[in-house]
Structure formats: C-alpha cells, structure tokens
Design a binder for these strands. Structure first.
Length: 112
DNA sequence: AACATGACCATTA
DNA sequence: GTAATGGCCATGT
C-alpha cells in the first residue's frame, strides 16, 4: 500500500499517540513523547508533526499538541491551530491554555 | 561523516 | 511575568 508515505517507526508511534488525544483536550510535546515510549524526545514530536502533510494531517489531530507552557509553538499557522482548538471548546487565557483544565491526563477525570 | 537547524523542556536569572 | 542557556536527538545539506 503505497498510499501512505514511509514514516519512521518513531513518527508513526507519535502519530498513534496524537490520534488518541480526546477532543477538547490538549497534550504537550513532552507528554506525547512519553506516551509514545520516547521520553525526552519532545523535540522530535514537534518535528514529526511538522512533517505531516495536509492529507496525513487530516487523520492526526495535530492541533491538540502544544508546548509545556500551554502556548502554541508554531511560528506560522498558529492562528489555524488556535481556531481549531477554540472550535473544540478549548479556551485561551490570553495566548495560553490552562493545562490543568484542558490538559489530557489526570485532570481529565474531573467531574465537570 | 560533520555541521546546522528545529511545531521542545527544565532551569536559571 | 519574560529572556537566555544547556540538553535532548532526528533530519537535511
């Protein structure tokens, strides 16, 4: 099946984790790296997502991945990511997202 | 193979 | 609160 480009095993692992991020939640690059079994490879997560084409990106909710500061790391296209997040009810405080509230993880179990 | 770059992170000032 | 530094390591030249 040559429809999909040959992504490294590392990239595919990263994409697999990103696909598991619930709608309305966000995860940090470092968190994705850990869940993908690649602790410390936060930078590579960003690299992997950057390598996504629009076609591949359609399957991966890349917009749900932000940096540890709760901000968008993109230098370009950040407004698109923000728009997608806001469309999922993720709210911004200025330019940052409250990870304690929208972060994917323990806080996810909070009873609304 | 060496070098530079990058959608990062934690620490420090 | 922001800014700079060192560390991390895959990619492309």
């Amino acid at each position: 099946v040559s429809a999909e480009p040959e992504a490294s095993a590392t990239y595919r692992r990263i994409y697999a984790v990103v696909k598991r991020i619930p709608r309305g939640k966000v995860a940090t690059y470092g968190q994705v790296a850990i869940l993908a079994g690649l602790p410390g490879h936060a930078r590579q997560v960003g690299y992997a997502l950057h390598a996504l084409s629009e076609a591949s990106g359609a399957k991966v909710p890349w917009h749900r991945v932000i940096n540890a500061q709760g901000k968008i790391s993109l230098r370009e296209g950040w407004e698109l990511q923000r728009a997608k997040l806001e469309a999922e009810r993720v709210r911004f405080r200025g330019d940052k997202i409250d990870l304690a509230r929208f972060g994917w993880g323990p806080g996810d179990a909070r009873k609304q």
